[in-house]
Simulated assay, not measured.
Amino acid sequence: MEVKYLSDNGEFKTLEISNLPSSPANGALAVAPETAIPADFSAEEASEKKVWKTDLVSVSGVPEIKEQTCYKRVRIPGDGNMNVPYPCPCTRTGRHWIELKVFYPSDLAGDVIDNIIKCAKEAAIYAAGIIAVGCIAPELLPPAVPTAQALFTDKFKNCLIEETFKLVDYSVSYEHESGDWNC
């Protein structure tokens, strides 16, 4: 598994986990800088608002397992063939992350937009730095969303002037995606 979080220099760092722990207290953690700079920030058009978004924390390579019934055709004496059910395991990997989106009016002046994004980055880095340590397993990400939202809001609100803060909306959400099942 790989856990990434937004670091103080605006790049993503990776928490490396050795010997997958059965509980967070059993694992050894080490922070290593990411070698390639990811496309971590993006702006998208959304009707009359623009959206700036980034991942605060992500856990990728999460193994998922399920069991389903498979059938094997066997030859039986006298009757011919029969489908015999048996349990077969299926696996896939997934990615879980906490995503921050900041919505701002598209008609704002360039310097105001730059300030909003600067403040959003600073607040995102602050929130990610605090919640990353507790998010070494995917099941710990959804409970971290309210904390991330509160940390981001406090830092973001203090960075912007009140009139600009009233123009901006934001959301912090838990997201998940998985690959195809291999049976």
Rank of each mutant, 00 (worst) to 15 (best):
L20A: 09
L20P: 04
S22Y: 12
S23D: 08
S23I: 06
A25D: 13
N26H: 07
G27R: 01
G27M: 11
A28L: 07
V31W: 01
A32K: 00
P33E: 14
E34R: 04
I37W: 08
P38N: 01
P38Q: 08
A39T: 12
F41I: 01
S42D: 04
S42R: 03
A43D: 10
A43R: 09
E45A: 06
V51I: 05
V51N: 00
W52Q: 02
D55F: 03
V59R: 00
S60T: 13
V62C: 10
P63Q: 08
I65M: 09
K66N: 00
E67F: 04
E67Y: 00
Q68K: 15
K72L: 02
V74N: 08
V74Q: 07
V74A: 11
R75I: 10
P77E: 13
P77C: 10
G78H: 13
G80L: 06
N81V: 06
N81H: 14
N83R: 15
V84P: 08
V84S: 07
Y86L: 01
P87F: 05
C88Q: 13
P89N: 14
P89D: 10
R92C: 09
R92A: 08
R92S: 10
G94V: 14
G94H: 12
G94F: 15
R95T: 15
H96S: 09
H96L: 07
E99I: 10
L100C: 07
K101F: 14
V102S: 00
F103E: 13
F103Y: 15
Y104R: 02
S106Q: 14
D107G: 06
L108H: 09
L108V: 14
L108C: 11
A109S: 11
G110S: 13
V112L: 09
I113Q: 14
I117H: 11
I117T: 14
K118W: 13
K118V: 10
C119H: 12
C119A: 03
A124M: 08
I125V: 06
I125H: 02
Y126E: 08
A127S: 05
A128V: 03
G129M: 03
I130F: 00
I130T: 12
A132H: 03
A132Y: 05
V133P: 02
V133W: 02
V133Y: 02
A137W: 04
P138L: 11
L140M: 10
